[in-house]
Design a protein around this nucleic acid. Structure first.
Lengths: 156, 156
DNA sequence: CTTTATAACAGAATATAATTCTGTATTTTA
DNA sequence: TAAAATACAGAATTATATTCTGTTATAAAG
Protein backbone atom coordinates (compact mmCIF):
# COMPACT_ATOMS: atom_id res chain seq x y z
CA UNK A 1 0.00 0.00 0.00
CA UNK A 2 1.46 3.28 -1.09
CA UNK A 3 -0.02 6.59 -2.05
CA UNK A 4 -0.88 5.39 -5.55
CA UNK A 5 -2.88 2.44 -4.24
CA UNK A 6 -4.53 4.90 -1.96
CA UNK A 7 -5.53 7.13 -4.84
CA UNK A 8 -6.96 4.14 -6.64
CA UNK A 9 -9.01 3.15 -3.62
CA UNK A 10 -10.38 6.64 -3.24
CA UNK A 11 -11.47 6.64 -6.85
CA UNK A 12 -13.05 3.21 -6.56
CA UNK A 13 -14.82 4.19 -3.39
CA UNK A 14 -16.58 6.96 -5.24
CA UNK A 15 -17.55 5.03 -8.32
CA UNK A 16 -16.85 1.35 -7.94
CA UNK A 17 -17.83 0.43 -11.46
CA UNK A 18 -15.52 2.84 -13.20
CA UNK A 19 -13.48 1.01 -15.83
CA UNK A 20 -9.80 0.40 -15.19
CA UNK A 21 -8.89 2.42 -18.22
CA UNK A 22 -10.66 5.38 -16.70
CA UNK A 23 -8.88 4.97 -13.37
CA UNK A 24 -5.62 4.78 -15.29
CA UNK A 25 -6.44 8.02 -17.07
CA UNK A 26 -7.32 9.77 -13.84
CA UNK A 27 -4.04 8.95 -12.16
CA UNK A 28 -1.94 9.09 -15.29
CA UNK A 29 -0.75 5.53 -15.54
CA UNK A 30 -1.06 2.67 -17.99
CA UNK A 31 -4.17 0.49 -17.64
CA UNK A 32 -2.04 -2.60 -17.25
CA UNK A 33 -0.18 -1.11 -14.31
CA UNK A 34 -3.37 -0.06 -12.60
CA UNK A 35 -4.87 -3.47 -13.15
CA UNK A 36 -1.82 -5.07 -11.58
CA UNK A 37 -2.26 -2.93 -8.52
CA UNK A 38 -5.96 -3.58 -8.18
CA UNK A 39 -5.46 -7.32 -8.48
CA UNK A 40 -2.82 -7.08 -5.82
CA UNK A 41 -5.09 -5.13 -3.51
CA UNK A 42 -7.74 -7.80 -3.97
CA UNK A 43 -5.25 -10.58 -3.29
CA UNK A 44 -4.01 -8.82 -0.17
CA UNK A 45 -7.55 -8.48 1.06
CA UNK A 46 -7.45 -4.70 1.10
CA UNK A 47 -10.29 -4.82 -1.36
CA UNK A 48 -12.80 -7.24 0.03
CA UNK A 49 -15.27 -7.20 -2.83
CA UNK A 50 -17.81 -5.15 -4.67
CA UNK A 51 -21.45 -4.56 -3.84
CA UNK A 52 -24.57 -3.26 -5.52
CA UNK A 53 -26.37 -0.65 -3.52
CA UNK A 54 -30.10 -1.26 -3.84
CA UNK A 55 -32.70 1.30 -2.89
CA UNK A 56 -34.43 -0.03 0.23
CA UNK A 57 -37.65 1.85 -0.50
CA UNK A 58 -38.24 -0.38 -3.49
CA UNK A 59 -38.29 -3.56 -1.46
CA UNK A 60 -40.01 -5.10 1.45
CA UNK A 61 -37.27 -4.19 3.83
CA UNK A 62 -37.74 -0.60 4.61
CA UNK A 63 -37.99 -0.86 8.37
CA UNK A 64 -34.66 -0.62 10.14
CA UNK A 65 -34.31 -1.40 13.81
CA UNK A 66 -31.40 -1.61 16.18
CA UNK A 67 -31.73 -4.36 18.73
CA UNK A 68 -29.78 -4.39 21.90
CA UNK A 69 -29.58 -7.98 23.00
CA UNK A 70 -28.67 -8.65 26.60
CA UNK A 71 -27.06 -12.02 27.07
CA UNK A 72 -27.45 -14.36 29.99
CA UNK A 73 -24.60 -14.72 32.43
CA UNK A 74 -23.44 -18.03 31.00
CA UNK A 75 -24.19 -17.20 27.39
CA UNK A 76 -22.32 -18.80 24.54
CA UNK A 77 -21.48 -15.53 22.89
CA UNK A 78 -19.80 -16.63 19.72
CA UNK A 79 -22.34 -19.34 18.93
CA UNK A 80 -25.21 -16.99 19.55
CA UNK A 81 -23.68 -14.26 17.45
CA UNK A 82 -23.09 -16.64 14.60
CA UNK A 83 -26.60 -18.02 14.76
CA UNK A 84 -27.93 -14.48 14.55
CA UNK A 85 -25.56 -13.70 11.71
CA UNK A 86 -27.15 -16.50 9.71
CA UNK A 87 -30.49 -14.75 9.64
CA UNK A 88 -31.00 -12.85 6.40
CA UNK A 89 -32.84 -9.93 7.91
CA UNK A 90 -30.06 -9.29 10.41
CA UNK A 91 -27.50 -7.15 8.66
CA UNK A 92 -25.09 -6.57 11.50
CA UNK A 93 -24.03 -8.35 14.65
CA UNK A 94 -21.61 -6.67 17.01
CA UNK A 95 -20.40 -7.56 20.45
CA UNK A 96 -20.55 -4.52 22.68
CA UNK A 97 -18.20 -3.59 25.49
CA UNK A 98 -19.36 -3.31 29.02
CA UNK A 99 -22.85 -4.71 28.92
CA UNK A 100 -22.57 -8.36 27.98
CA UNK A 101 -24.65 -7.58 25.01
CA UNK A 102 -24.91 -7.68 21.27
CA UNK A 103 -25.96 -4.88 19.00
CA UNK A 104 -27.96 -5.96 15.98
CA UNK A 105 -29.04 -4.01 12.97
CA UNK A 106 -32.05 -5.55 11.31
CA UNK A 107 -33.96 -4.70 8.18
CA UNK A 108 -37.48 -6.05 7.87
CA UNK A 109 -40.70 -5.33 6.03
CA UNK A 110 -42.65 -3.84 8.91
CA UNK A 111 -43.22 -3.93 12.65
CA UNK A 112 -45.13 -7.13 12.32
CA UNK A 113 -42.15 -8.81 10.70
CA UNK A 114 -39.98 -7.43 13.47
CA UNK A 115 -42.31 -8.92 16.04
CA UNK A 116 -42.11 -12.30 14.35
CA UNK A 117 -38.35 -12.12 14.23
CA UNK A 118 -38.14 -11.27 17.90
CA UNK A 119 -40.69 -13.68 19.27
CA UNK A 120 -39.97 -16.68 17.10
CA UNK A 121 -36.26 -16.49 16.49
CA UNK A 122 -34.32 -14.18 18.78
CA UNK A 123 -36.00 -14.19 22.17
CA UNK A 124 -36.27 -17.99 22.31
CA UNK A 125 -32.51 -18.39 22.06
CA UNK A 126 -31.12 -19.77 25.32
CA UNK A 127 -28.36 -17.18 25.59
CA UNK A 128 -30.72 -14.26 25.11
CA UNK A 129 -31.91 -12.67 28.34
CA UNK A 130 -33.85 -9.80 26.82
CA UNK A 131 -33.90 -7.43 23.90
CA UNK A 132 -34.51 -3.75 23.55
CA UNK A 133 -35.60 -2.48 20.15
CA UNK A 134 -34.95 0.96 18.74
CA UNK A 135 -37.06 1.48 15.67
CA UNK A 136 -35.80 3.85 13.03
CA UNK A 137 -38.25 6.48 11.87
CA UNK A 138 -36.01 8.12 9.32
CA UNK A 139 -32.50 7.73 8.05
CA UNK A 140 -30.32 10.70 7.18
CA UNK A 141 -27.16 8.89 6.23
CA UNK A 142 -26.28 5.29 5.64
CA UNK A 143 -23.03 4.31 4.03
CA UNK A 144 -20.49 1.54 4.36
CA UNK A 145 -17.70 3.70 3.06
CA UNK A 146 -14.66 3.59 5.26
CA UNK A 147 -13.55 7.13 5.98
CA UNK A 148 -10.20 7.49 4.24
CA UNK A 149 -7.84 10.30 5.21
CA UNK A 150 -6.98 12.97 2.66
CA UNK A 151 -3.50 11.69 2.05
CA UNK A 152 -1.75 8.42 2.63
CA UNK A 153 0.78 7.83 5.35
CA UNK A 154 2.01 4.51 6.64
CA UNK A 155 0.77 3.23 9.97
CA UNK A 156 3.63 1.77 12.01
CA UNK B 1 -39.77 -4.90 -11.68
CA UNK B 2 -40.64 -8.45 -12.52
CA UNK B 3 -39.15 -11.76 -11.62
CA UNK B 4 -36.39 -11.46 -14.20
CA UNK B 5 -35.22 -8.13 -12.81
CA UNK B 6 -35.35 -9.78 -9.46
CA UNK B 7 -33.09 -12.60 -10.61
CA UNK B 8 -30.66 -10.07 -11.99
CA UNK B 9 -30.57 -8.18 -8.72
CA UNK B 10 -29.94 -11.33 -6.76
CA UNK B 11 -27.02 -12.18 -8.99
CA UNK B 12 -25.60 -8.68 -8.76
CA UNK B 13 -25.98 -8.65 -5.02
CA UNK B 14 -23.74 -11.68 -4.76
CA UNK B 15 -21.06 -10.55 -7.16
CA UNK B 16 -21.53 -6.96 -8.19
CA UNK B 17 -18.68 -6.93 -10.67
CA UNK B 18 -19.82 -9.90 -12.68
CA UNK B 19 -19.88 -9.00 -16.37
CA UNK B 20 -23.20 -8.51 -18.08
CA UNK B 21 -22.45 -11.30 -20.47
CA UNK B 22 -22.10 -13.63 -17.51
CA UNK B 23 -25.39 -12.50 -15.99
CA UNK B 24 -26.99 -13.06 -19.37
CA UNK B 25 -25.60 -16.58 -19.48
CA UNK B 26 -26.83 -17.35 -15.99
CA UNK B 27 -30.39 -16.37 -16.71
CA UNK B 28 -30.41 -17.50 -20.31
CA UNK B 29 -30.95 -14.24 -22.09
CA UNK B 30 -29.09 -12.10 -24.61
CA UNK B 31 -26.53 -9.67 -23.15
CA UNK B 32 -28.23 -6.76 -24.83
CA UNK B 33 -31.54 -7.58 -23.17
CA UNK B 34 -29.94 -7.89 -19.76
CA UNK B 35 -28.10 -4.64 -20.23
CA UNK B 36 -31.34 -2.94 -21.13
CA UNK B 37 -32.89 -4.14 -17.90
CA UNK B 38 -29.96 -3.13 -15.75
CA UNK B 39 -29.90 0.35 -17.24
CA UNK B 40 -33.58 0.62 -16.55
CA UNK B 41 -33.16 -0.48 -12.95
CA UNK B 42 -30.49 2.17 -12.53
CA UNK B 43 -32.69 4.82 -14.10
CA UNK B 44 -35.61 3.86 -11.90
CA UNK B 45 -33.41 4.12 -8.84
CA UNK B 46 -33.83 0.50 -7.89
CA UNK B 47 -30.10 0.18 -8.27
CA UNK B 48 -28.61 3.09 -6.39
CA UNK B 49 -24.99 2.49 -7.27
CA UNK B 50 -22.04 0.25 -6.76
CA UNK B 51 -19.54 0.17 -3.91
CA UNK B 52 -16.13 -1.24 -3.17
CA UNK B 53 -15.95 -3.09 0.10
CA UNK B 54 -12.65 -2.27 1.76
CA UNK B 55 -11.24 -4.28 4.62
CA UNK B 56 -11.45 -2.04 7.70
CA UNK B 57 -8.53 -3.80 9.42
CA UNK B 58 -6.21 -2.37 6.81
CA UNK B 59 -7.06 1.22 7.61
CA UNK B 60 -7.18 3.57 10.50
CA UNK B 61 -10.84 3.08 11.06
CA UNK B 62 -11.17 -0.16 12.84
CA UNK B 63 -13.06 1.04 15.89
CA UNK B 64 -16.80 0.99 15.49
CA UNK B 65 -19.09 2.63 18.00
CA UNK B 66 -22.81 3.20 18.20
CA UNK B 67 -23.73 6.50 19.72
CA UNK B 68 -27.11 7.17 21.14
CA UNK B 69 -27.61 10.89 21.00
CA UNK B 70 -30.33 12.35 23.18
CA UNK B 71 -31.67 15.59 21.81
CA UNK B 72 -32.81 18.61 23.77
CA UNK B 73 -36.50 19.34 24.01
CA UNK B 74 -36.40 22.09 21.40
CA UNK B 75 -33.81 20.46 19.18
CA UNK B 76 -33.64 21.15 15.48
CA UNK B 77 -33.65 17.52 14.52
CA UNK B 78 -33.18 17.68 10.80
CA UNK B 79 -30.44 20.28 10.93
CA UNK B 80 -28.59 18.41 13.60
CA UNK B 81 -28.89 15.13 11.76
CA UNK B 82 -27.59 16.68 8.58
CA UNK B 83 -24.68 18.32 10.33
CA UNK B 84 -23.75 14.96 11.79
CA UNK B 85 -24.18 13.31 8.41
CA UNK B 86 -21.53 15.64 7.02
CA UNK B 87 -18.86 14.19 9.25
CA UNK B 88 -16.78 11.60 7.46
CA UNK B 89 -16.34 9.28 10.40
CA UNK B 90 -20.07 9.07 10.98
CA UNK B 91 -21.38 6.37 8.70
CA UNK B 92 -25.00 6.33 9.74
CA UNK B 93 -27.49 8.76 11.19
CA UNK B 94 -30.95 7.52 12.13
CA UNK B 95 -33.81 9.14 13.95
CA UNK B 96 -35.15 6.77 16.56
CA UNK B 97 -38.73 6.37 17.69
CA UNK B 98 -39.75 7.07 21.21
CA UNK B 99 -36.72 8.67 22.74
CA UNK B 100 -36.16 11.96 20.94
CA UNK B 101 -32.84 10.63 19.93
CA UNK B 102 -30.53 9.81 17.09
CA UNK B 103 -28.60 6.63 16.59
CA UNK B 104 -25.19 7.07 15.04
CA UNK B 105 -22.76 4.53 13.75
CA UNK B 106 -19.23 5.84 13.73
CA UNK B 107 -15.96 4.41 12.54
CA UNK B 108 -12.77 5.89 13.92
CA UNK B 109 -9.14 4.99 14.44
CA UNK B 110 -9.26 4.40 18.19
CA UNK B 111 -10.87 5.45 21.45
CA UNK B 112 -8.87 8.63 21.46
CA UNK B 113 -10.29 9.61 18.09
CA UNK B 114 -13.74 8.80 19.41
CA UNK B 115 -13.13 11.06 22.39
CA UNK B 116 -12.09 13.87 20.10
CA UNK B 117 -15.15 13.39 17.94
CA UNK B 118 -17.44 13.47 20.95
CA UNK B 119 -15.92 16.33 22.85
CA UNK B 120 -15.06 18.64 20.00
CA UNK B 121 -17.80 18.01 17.48
CA UNK B 122 -20.86 16.20 18.78
CA UNK B 123 -21.37 17.18 22.40
CA UNK B 124 -20.93 20.90 21.73
CA UNK B 125 -23.86 20.93 19.32
CA UNK B 126 -26.73 22.97 20.79
CA UNK B 127 -29.36 20.31 20.10
CA UNK B 128 -27.37 17.56 21.76
CA UNK B 129 -28.32 16.93 25.36
CA UNK B 130 -26.10 13.93 25.96
CA UNK B 131 -24.59 10.93 24.26
CA UNK B 132 -24.17 7.33 25.23
CA UNK B 133 -21.47 5.33 23.48
CA UNK B 134 -21.50 1.62 22.84
CA UNK B 135 -18.08 0.52 21.74
CA UNK B 136 -17.83 -2.52 19.53
CA UNK B 137 -15.36 -5.16 20.63
CA UNK B 138 -15.91 -7.56 17.77
CA UNK B 139 -18.07 -7.75 14.70
CA UNK B 140 -19.61 -11.00 13.53
CA UNK B 141 -21.56 -9.74 10.58
CA UNK B 142 -21.67 -6.47 8.72
CA UNK B 143 -23.37 -6.19 5.38
CA UNK B 144 -25.43 -3.62 3.53
CA UNK B 145 -27.17 -6.26 1.48
CA UNK B 146 -30.90 -5.86 1.52
CA UNK B 147 -32.51 -9.17 2.36
CA UNK B 148 -34.32 -10.23 -0.78
CA UNK B 149 -37.02 -12.89 -0.61
CA UNK B 150 -36.51 -16.19 -2.41
CA UNK B 151 -38.95 -15.39 -5.15
CA UNK B 152 -40.44 -12.24 -6.51
CA UNK B 153 -44.01 -11.21 -5.95
CA UNK B 154 -45.51 -7.78 -6.48
CA UNK B 155 -46.19 -5.61 -3.48
CA UNK B 156 -49.58 -3.91 -3.81
C1' DC C 1 29.90 -0.62 -4.57
C1' DT C 2 28.59 -3.96 -7.78
C1' DT C 3 25.91 -7.76 -9.01
C1' DT C 4 21.62 -10.13 -8.84
C1' DA C 5 16.99 -10.54 -7.95
C1' DT C 6 12.51 -8.42 -7.58
C1' DA C 7 8.97 -5.37 -8.40
C1' DA C 8 6.65 -1.67 -11.14
C1' DC C 9 5.57 0.04 -15.25
C1' DA C 10 4.54 1.13 -20.33
C1' DG C 11 3.01 -0.18 -24.63
C1' DA C 12 1.50 -3.47 -27.91
C1' DA C 13 -1.29 -7.54 -28.86
C1' DT C 14 -5.16 -10.26 -27.89
C1' DA C 15 -9.35 -11.69 -25.73
C1' DT C 16 -13.47 -10.42 -23.74
C1' DA C 17 -17.18 -7.52 -22.71
C1' DA C 18 -20.14 -3.36 -23.29
C1' DT C 19 -22.92 -0.95 -26.21
C1' DT C 20 -25.44 0.19 -30.26
C1' DC C 21 -28.43 -0.96 -33.84
C1' DT C 22 -32.02 -3.32 -36.33
C1' DG C 23 -35.77 -6.27 -36.94
C1' DT C 24 -39.33 -9.08 -34.88
C1' DA C 25 -42.53 -10.76 -31.61
C1' DT C 26 -45.29 -9.72 -27.74
C1' DT C 27 -47.84 -7.04 -24.86
C1' DT C 28 -50.49 -2.65 -23.74
C1' DT C 29 -53.35 0.94 -24.73
C1' DA C 30 -56.78 3.26 -26.93
C1' DT D 1 -58.69 -4.41 -33.64
C1' DA D 2 -55.31 -1.07 -34.77
C1' DA D 3 -51.57 1.58 -33.06
C1' DA D 4 -48.03 2.19 -29.92
C1' DA D 5 -44.89 0.72 -26.70
C1' DT D 6 -41.93 -2.72 -24.76
C1' DA D 7 -38.92 -6.73 -24.62
C1' DC D 8 -35.94 -9.37 -26.81
C1' DA D 9 -32.34 -11.66 -29.94
C1' DG D 10 -28.52 -11.45 -32.83
C1' DA D 11 -25.14 -9.08 -35.45
C1' DA D 12 -21.95 -5.22 -35.71
C1' DT D 13 -19.18 -2.01 -33.47
C1' DT D 14 -16.77 0.08 -29.90
C1' DA D 15 -14.53 -0.12 -25.62
C1' DT D 16 -12.33 -2.40 -22.01
C1' DA D 17 -9.87 -6.19 -19.65
C1' DT D 18 -6.11 -9.06 -19.71
C1' DT D 19 -1.85 -10.97 -21.17
C1' DC D 20 2.70 -10.54 -22.67
C1' DT D 21 7.23 -8.57 -23.37
C1' DG D 22 10.86 -5.56 -22.61
C1' DT D 23 12.64 -1.81 -19.81
C1' DT D 24 13.60 0.76 -15.84
C1' DA D 25 13.74 1.36 -11.21
C1' DT D 26 14.26 -0.51 -6.60
C1' DA D 27 15.89 -3.58 -3.22
C1' DA D 28 18.78 -7.33 -1.52
C1' DA D 29 22.99 -9.82 -1.43
C1' DG D 30 27.57 -10.31 -1.80
Amino acid sequence: MDHIDFKILKILQTKARIPNVEVAREIGMAPSAVLERIKKLEAQGVIDGYEVRLNPDQFEGSLIAFLHVTLTRNARIKETAMALADMASIQEVHYIAGEDGLMLKVRVADTSALETLLTTRINPMPSVARTKSSIVLSTFKETAKIPLPETYHTTP
